[in-house]
Computed example of a mutant assay.
Amino acid sequence: MGLLDGKVAIITGAGGGIGRAEALLFAREGARVVVNDVGGARDGVGADDAMARQVVAEIEAAGGKAVANFDSVATVEGAARIVQTAVDAFGRVDVLVNNAGILRDKTLLKTDEANWDSVIAVHLKGTFLCTQAAARQMVSQGNGGRIVNTTSVSGMLGNFGQSNYAAAKAGIYGLTRTAAIELQKQRITVNAVAPIAKTRMTEDLPMFQSARDTMTPEHVAPAALFLASDLCADRTGHVLAVAGSQMYAYKVVQSPGKFKDEGAVWTASEIAENWDAIVKV
């Protein structure tokens, strides 16, 4: 018995890297999988059906069931067709993993509007559109569902040269939290993974030059599987981070702060004088 027996899962950006690892693992655990990938370069330029088709072939060769989809997550029409592919092929949608992404790294002062818009469109807008389309399908089915988003350490903490990517990933965190609240009554859980792994998108970063096999997509996939399965129970609104063999959670934490007399207004000088007490967690 697999953890996803009888389930239908959509995984966006599943032609390589983390998405591919998730698709292969989900299929091994019994899911019928929609492998979505435009097949473009790391910066989102171009398209090639071969990547998604190859993952489908791998799943089928291992005895699983899968279909390919090549639509962009960044348009309403594309998101709708991705969900419809699952319905046409397998009759329903139980799990959505929003994994599709691109990179166009430049420092803040060198980032142009086109690079900003492209990254936001695929990561943040794509996550919103696919979440909305899949959630509507899940609600119509009446059996709940699982949505797993992909945020990032860059979105949680920031990272040099990634203002567009970090902003998109931080937005995905906020979207995850809000969707978790709104969809809870429909028995749809919404969680996120924040992976650190060596993939086509990250392999040239300094931190991965010596990573070898210690931070792979295969380290990340089980976290997505957990969040997509009944083992997750009713847990929702969480960010599960994975860095090789380490797993931990990201949370927004409020410091206890410092109080003045009720109704009193802080002055800027007082804020400066009490800074350490205000921000101490």
Score class of each variant (00 low, 15 high):
1 M>E: 15
4 L>F: 12
5 D>F: 04
8 V>S: 02
8 V>P: 10
9 A>Y: 12
11 I>C: 00
11 I>F: 11
12 T>D: 12
16 G>T: 06
18 I>A: 01
19 G>N: 11
23 A>K: 11
25 L>W: 10
28 R>Y: 03
30 G>P: 04
31 A>W: 03
32 R>K: 15
33 V>L: 08
38 V>H: 04
40 G>A: 02
41 A>H: 12
41 A>T: 13
41 A>P: 04
44 G>A: 03
48 D>V: 14
49 D>Y: 03
51 M>R: 14
55 V>C: 07
60 E>L: 06
62 A>I: 06
63 G>E: 04
66 A>M: 04
68 A>I: 08
73 V>K: 10
74 A>S: 08
76 V>Q: 12
83 V>P: 08
85 T>M: 09
85 T>G: 10
88 D>W: 08
88 D>I: 15
89 A>M: 11
92 R>V: 03
94 D>P: 05
95 V>P: 15
96 L>M: 15
97 V>C: 10
99 N>T: 05
111 T>M: 10
113 E>G: 09
117 D>N: 09
119 V>Y: 04
125 K>F: 05
128 F>W: 05
139 V>G: 04
143 N>S: 13
144 G>P: 04
147 I>A: 03
148 V>L: 14
149 N>F: 04
150 T>R: 04
159 N>W: 08
159 N>Q: 14
161 G>D: 03
162 Q>A: 03
166 A>G: 11
168 A>C: 02
169 K>A: 07
169 K>L: 06
174 G>M: 01
175 L>N: 13
177 R>G: 00
181 I>T: 06
185 K>D: 07
185 K>A: 10
191 N>C: 03
199 T>A: 10
202 T>M: 09
203 E>R: 13
206 P>G: 13
207 M>L: 14
207 M>E: 07
220 V>F: 06
222 P>G: 11
225 L>D: 02
225 L>V: 05
229 S>I: 03
231 L>A: 08
231 L>D: 15
232 C>E: 13
237 G>C: 08
239 V>Q: 01
241 A>G: 02
241 A>K: 00
243 A>S: 10
245 S>F: 14
245 S>W: 09
249 A>P: 04
250 Y>E: 15
255 S>A: 12
265 V>H: 05
266 W>I: 13
268 A>N: 13
